[in-house]
Protein backbone atom coordinates (compact mmCIF):
# COMPACT_ATOMS: atom_id res chain seq x y z
CA UNK A 1 0.00 0.00 0.00
CA UNK A 2 1.24 3.50 -0.82
CA UNK A 3 2.76 5.49 2.02
CA UNK A 4 2.78 9.21 2.79
CA UNK A 5 6.57 9.29 2.81
CA UNK A 6 6.64 8.57 -0.91
CA UNK A 7 9.17 6.53 -2.86
CA UNK A 8 12.00 8.96 -2.19
CA UNK A 9 12.47 9.48 -5.92
CA UNK A 10 12.21 13.00 -7.34
CA UNK A 11 10.43 11.99 -10.56
CA UNK A 12 7.75 10.10 -8.62
CA UNK A 13 7.05 13.14 -6.47
CA UNK A 14 7.02 15.45 -9.47
CA UNK A 15 4.59 13.17 -11.29
CA UNK A 16 2.20 13.24 -8.35
CA UNK A 17 2.51 17.03 -8.08
CA UNK A 18 1.77 17.44 -11.78
CA UNK A 19 -1.48 15.46 -11.62
CA UNK A 20 -4.66 15.89 -9.65
CA UNK A 21 -4.57 13.90 -6.44
CA UNK A 22 -8.02 12.37 -7.02
CA UNK A 23 -8.75 12.34 -10.77
CA UNK A 24 -5.17 11.94 -11.99
CA UNK A 25 -5.70 14.67 -14.60
CA UNK A 26 -2.50 16.56 -15.50
CA UNK A 27 -2.24 20.21 -14.51
CA UNK A 28 0.12 20.99 -17.37
CA UNK A 29 0.42 20.22 -21.06
CA UNK A 30 1.78 16.69 -21.47
CA UNK A 31 4.93 18.02 -23.17
CA UNK A 32 5.68 20.24 -20.16
CA UNK A 33 5.05 17.31 -17.79
CA UNK A 34 7.38 15.20 -19.93
CA UNK A 35 10.19 17.75 -19.85
CA UNK A 36 9.84 18.20 -16.09
CA UNK A 37 9.91 14.44 -15.50
CA UNK A 38 12.86 14.04 -17.86
CA UNK A 39 14.73 16.58 -15.74
CA UNK A 40 13.66 14.72 -12.61
CA UNK A 41 14.91 11.37 -13.96
CA UNK A 42 18.31 12.91 -14.65
CA UNK A 43 18.20 14.58 -11.22
CA UNK A 44 17.75 11.17 -9.62
CA UNK A 45 20.99 10.03 -11.23
CA UNK A 46 22.78 13.20 -10.11
CA UNK A 47 21.48 12.78 -6.55
CA UNK A 48 22.54 9.12 -6.55
CA UNK A 49 26.05 10.10 -7.64
CA UNK A 50 25.82 8.29 -10.97
CA UNK A 51 26.29 11.28 -13.25
CA UNK A 52 27.49 14.87 -13.16
CA UNK A 53 26.38 17.73 -15.38
CA UNK A 54 28.70 20.47 -16.61
CA UNK A 55 28.17 22.90 -19.47
CA UNK A 56 25.18 20.92 -20.82
CA UNK A 57 27.24 17.73 -20.95
CA UNK A 58 26.82 14.59 -18.90
CA UNK A 59 29.83 13.14 -17.17
CA UNK A 60 29.80 9.67 -15.64
CA UNK A 61 30.55 9.96 -11.95
CA UNK A 62 29.97 6.40 -10.72
CA UNK A 63 29.02 3.14 -12.34
CA UNK A 64 27.23 1.54 -9.39
CA UNK A 65 23.81 0.58 -10.70
CA UNK A 66 20.91 2.35 -9.00
CA UNK A 67 18.44 0.01 -7.32
CA UNK A 68 15.46 1.28 -9.30
CA UNK A 69 14.83 -0.31 -12.68
CA UNK A 70 13.82 2.90 -14.48
CA UNK A 71 16.85 4.75 -13.12
CA UNK A 72 19.05 1.87 -14.33
CA UNK A 73 17.49 2.14 -17.78
CA UNK A 74 18.05 5.89 -17.95
CA UNK A 75 21.64 5.50 -16.73
CA UNK A 76 22.22 2.81 -19.34
CA UNK A 77 20.91 5.17 -22.02
CA UNK A 78 23.03 8.16 -21.05
CA UNK A 79 26.07 5.90 -20.85
CA UNK A 80 25.39 4.34 -24.24
CA UNK A 81 25.20 7.50 -26.35
CA UNK A 82 26.74 10.94 -26.17
CA UNK A 83 24.32 13.84 -26.31
CA UNK A 84 23.87 17.23 -24.67
CA UNK A 85 21.47 17.54 -21.74
CA UNK A 86 18.81 19.45 -23.78
CA UNK A 87 18.74 16.51 -26.21
CA UNK A 88 18.42 14.03 -23.35
CA UNK A 89 15.59 16.11 -21.90
CA UNK A 90 13.80 16.07 -25.26
CA UNK A 91 14.37 12.34 -25.69
CA UNK A 92 13.39 11.28 -22.19
CA UNK A 93 10.38 13.64 -22.21
CA UNK A 94 8.76 11.52 -24.94
CA UNK A 95 8.06 8.63 -22.59
CA UNK A 96 8.83 9.96 -19.11
CA UNK A 97 5.22 10.42 -18.09
CA UNK A 98 4.32 6.82 -18.93
CA UNK A 99 7.56 5.40 -17.52
CA UNK A 100 7.20 7.17 -14.18
CA UNK A 101 3.49 6.32 -13.97
CA UNK A 102 4.31 2.65 -14.44
CA UNK A 103 6.95 2.87 -11.72
CA UNK A 104 4.41 4.46 -9.38
CA UNK A 105 1.89 1.79 -10.35
CA UNK A 106 4.36 -0.91 -9.36
CA UNK A 107 4.68 0.80 -5.96
CA UNK A 108 0.87 0.96 -5.58
CA UNK A 109 0.75 4.75 -5.74
CA UNK A 110 -1.22 4.70 -8.98
CA UNK A 111 -3.69 2.41 -10.63
CA UNK A 112 -4.71 2.38 -14.27
CA UNK A 113 -8.39 3.27 -14.53
CA UNK A 114 -10.27 2.45 -17.70
CA UNK A 115 -12.20 5.29 -19.35
CA UNK A 116 -15.96 4.96 -19.63
CA UNK A 117 -15.75 6.66 -23.02
CA UNK A 118 -14.25 4.46 -25.72
CA UNK A 119 -12.47 7.35 -27.49
CA UNK A 120 -10.59 8.34 -24.35
CA UNK A 121 -7.38 6.70 -23.24
CA UNK A 122 -7.12 4.99 -19.89
CA UNK A 123 -5.69 7.16 -17.11
CA UNK A 124 -3.53 6.50 -14.09
CA UNK A 125 -5.25 7.69 -10.93
CA UNK A 126 -3.75 7.89 -7.45
CA UNK A 127 -4.72 5.06 -5.11
CA UNK A 128 -4.58 7.40 -2.12
CA UNK A 129 -5.26 11.12 -2.43
CA UNK A 130 -3.27 11.96 0.71
CA UNK A 131 -0.20 10.15 -0.60
CA UNK A 132 -0.60 11.88 -3.96
CA UNK A 133 -0.80 15.27 -2.24
CA UNK A 134 2.14 14.68 0.09
CA UNK A 135 4.91 15.64 -2.40
CA UNK A 136 3.62 19.22 -2.30
CA UNK A 137 4.54 19.34 1.37
CA UNK A 138 7.98 17.89 0.66
CA UNK A 139 8.58 20.65 -1.87
CA UNK A 140 6.97 23.27 0.36
CA UNK A 141 10.00 23.39 2.66
CA UNK A 142 11.93 25.00 -0.20
CA UNK A 143 9.56 27.97 -0.06
CA UNK A 144 10.04 28.81 3.59
CA UNK A 145 13.40 29.94 4.99
CA UNK A 146 12.27 28.86 8.45
CA UNK A 147 11.99 25.21 7.42
CA UNK A 148 14.83 22.78 6.84
CA UNK A 149 14.88 21.52 3.27
CA UNK A 150 16.51 18.43 1.84
CA UNK A 151 18.48 18.47 -1.40
CA UNK A 152 15.82 16.25 -2.97
CA UNK A 153 13.06 18.59 -1.74
CA UNK A 154 14.82 21.66 -3.14
CA UNK A 155 15.45 19.88 -6.45
CA UNK A 156 11.82 18.81 -6.60
CA UNK A 157 10.63 22.37 -5.97
CA UNK A 158 13.07 23.79 -8.52
CA UNK A 159 12.04 21.32 -11.22
CA UNK A 160 8.37 21.84 -10.44
CA UNK A 161 8.71 25.59 -10.97
CA UNK A 162 10.84 25.01 -14.08
CA UNK A 163 8.21 22.94 -15.89
CA UNK A 164 5.35 25.28 -14.98
CA UNK A 165 4.05 24.02 -11.66
CA UNK A 166 4.93 27.26 -9.86
CA UNK A 167 1.29 28.38 -9.59
CA UNK A 168 0.45 25.01 -7.98
CA UNK A 169 3.34 25.07 -5.54
CA UNK A 170 3.86 28.71 -4.54
CA UNK A 171 0.46 29.29 -2.87
CA UNK A 172 1.55 26.76 -0.22
CA UNK A 173 4.48 28.94 0.80
CA UNK A 174 4.60 32.11 2.87
CA UNK A 175 4.91 35.62 1.46
CA UNK A 176 8.09 35.89 -0.57
CA UNK A 177 8.00 32.17 -1.43
CA UNK A 178 9.17 32.78 -4.98
CA UNK A 179 12.29 34.60 -3.81
CA UNK A 180 12.95 31.93 -1.20
CA UNK A 181 12.64 29.21 -3.85
CA UNK A 182 15.10 31.03 -6.11
CA UNK A 183 17.52 31.35 -3.20
CA UNK A 184 17.13 27.67 -2.24
CA UNK A 185 17.85 26.59 -5.82
CA UNK A 186 20.92 28.84 -5.87
CA UNK A 187 22.26 26.89 -2.90
CA UNK A 188 22.06 23.57 -4.75
CA UNK A 189 25.08 21.86 -6.28
CA UNK A 190 26.06 23.25 -9.72
CA UNK A 191 24.87 20.04 -11.45
CA UNK A 192 21.37 20.36 -10.09
CA UNK A 193 21.22 24.12 -10.66
CA UNK A 194 22.19 23.62 -14.26
CA UNK A 195 19.71 20.79 -14.72
CA UNK A 196 16.88 22.93 -13.33
CA UNK A 197 17.87 25.85 -15.58
CA UNK A 198 18.03 23.59 -18.63
CA UNK A 199 14.62 22.15 -17.76
CA UNK A 200 13.24 25.68 -17.54
CA UNK A 201 14.87 26.59 -20.87
CA UNK A 202 13.41 23.47 -22.52
CA UNK A 203 9.94 24.34 -21.22
CA UNK A 204 10.28 27.96 -22.39
CA UNK A 205 11.48 26.81 -25.80
CA UNK A 206 8.45 24.58 -26.24
CA UNK A 207 6.17 27.42 -25.18
CA UNK A 208 7.77 30.04 -27.43
CA UNK A 209 7.88 27.70 -30.42
CA UNK A 210 4.19 26.89 -29.96
CA UNK A 211 4.69 23.19 -29.25
CA UNK A 212 2.03 23.58 -26.58
Amino acid sequence: MARLTGTGLVADDLYLMAHHEVTGRPYLHHRAVGVGLAGALLAELVLAGNIRIRAERIAVAGRAAPPDELARTVLGLVLSERHLVPDWLAFLARSAERDVAQRLERQDYLTLAGSRRPWRADRWVPTDADCAFAPLFRAQAALDPAKPVTVAGATLAGLAAACGLGPRLLPFGPKGARRCLDETVRQLAPDLRELIALTQAATDRLLLSQRF
Binding site: E194, A197, L198, A201, D204, R205, L207, L208, S209
Partner: peptide, 10 residues
Protein backbone atom coordinates in the same frame (compact mmCIF):
# COMPACT_ATOMS: atom_id res chain seq x y z
CA UNK B 1 18.20 35.17 -25.10
CA UNK B 2 14.44 34.43 -24.94
CA UNK B 3 13.91 30.80 -23.94
CA UNK B 4 17.58 30.56 -23.05
CA UNK B 5 17.26 33.26 -20.41
CA UNK B 6 17.04 30.52 -17.77
CA UNK B 7 20.55 29.32 -18.58
CA UNK B 8 21.66 32.96 -18.80
CA UNK B 9 20.46 33.44 -15.23
CA UNK B 10 22.43 30.34 -14.31
Amino acid sequence: LGAHAATGHL
